[in-house]
Structure formats: C-alpha cells, structure tokens
C-alpha cells in the first residue's frame, strides 16, 4: 500500500505504524463529569466499519508526522491522507 503523504508524496505503508480509528484524536476531558464512562468508550469501543475508515498512521521511519488516512477496509484502497495536526486544529476551530 502507498500512502499519499501531504508533504512527502507517495510513501510505502511499511514506513508507517498503525494506531487505529481517527476518533482517537478526540480524547475526552478527564476532569469532566462522567469522564470514567467516556474514557471506557474512548479507549475500548470502536465503530470498526466495513468500507471507508478514517485512521491514524504514524510516519515512524519518515518525518514522524501523524496522518489521518482514509482507506476502504474492504479493498485496502487508500482514498486520501491529511496531517492529523490539520484535522485536530480544524476540529478545535469548529468548536467540537
């Protein structure tokens, strides 16, 4: 699999390590009311879709950036990749 790195172009997926669902970016507030339940959900529960999946890949043997890769789990086709930093900042701007 080749991952279209936004800064470096097509890179072999072997340069990356895989973390999982991109929803892991949205870490709950540990001080909030009901944080325990929110963390149990955050740490353990997954959508695990068959089809398009947004997921976190770490360019460990490259520029050490985190990417959000959109990939089809039924075909392994990679649709696109963005810097996880951009995704996170956009999320913050949207006030999520």
């Amino acid at each position: 699999m080749l991952i279209p790195h936004p800064l470096l172009g097509l890179r072999d997926a072997q340069e990356f390590t895989y973390l999982g669902d991109a929803s892991l970016i949205a870490r709950p507030d540990g001080m909030a009311e009901g944080a325990e339940a929110a963390f149990a959900e955050y740490v353990y529960q997954r959508d695990n879709p068959a089809g398009l999946h947004r997921e976190l890949w770490f360019h460990e043997q490259g520029d050490r950036s985190w990417l959000v890769v959109t990939r089809d789990t039924t075909t392994h086709e990679i649709i696109g990749a963005e810097l996880a930093r951009d995704v996170s900042l956009a999320r913050r701007e949207a006030g999520a």
Binding site: D21, Y44, Q45, R46, D47, N48, P49, T73
Partner: peptide, 18 residues
C-alpha cells in the same frame, strides 16, 4: 470477523477491530 457489522444492526458498538 463480522461481529461489529452484525451487532451494529442491533445498535451496538463492540470493543473489537477486524
């Protein structure tokens, strides 16, 4: 293998990745 897909039809999320 397909537990998440099937249980999603019952409105459940599972602690599972395929």
């Amino acid at each position: 293998g397909s537990s998440s897909r099937v249980m999603q039809m019952a409105g459940m999320r599972l602690p599972i990745e395929s």
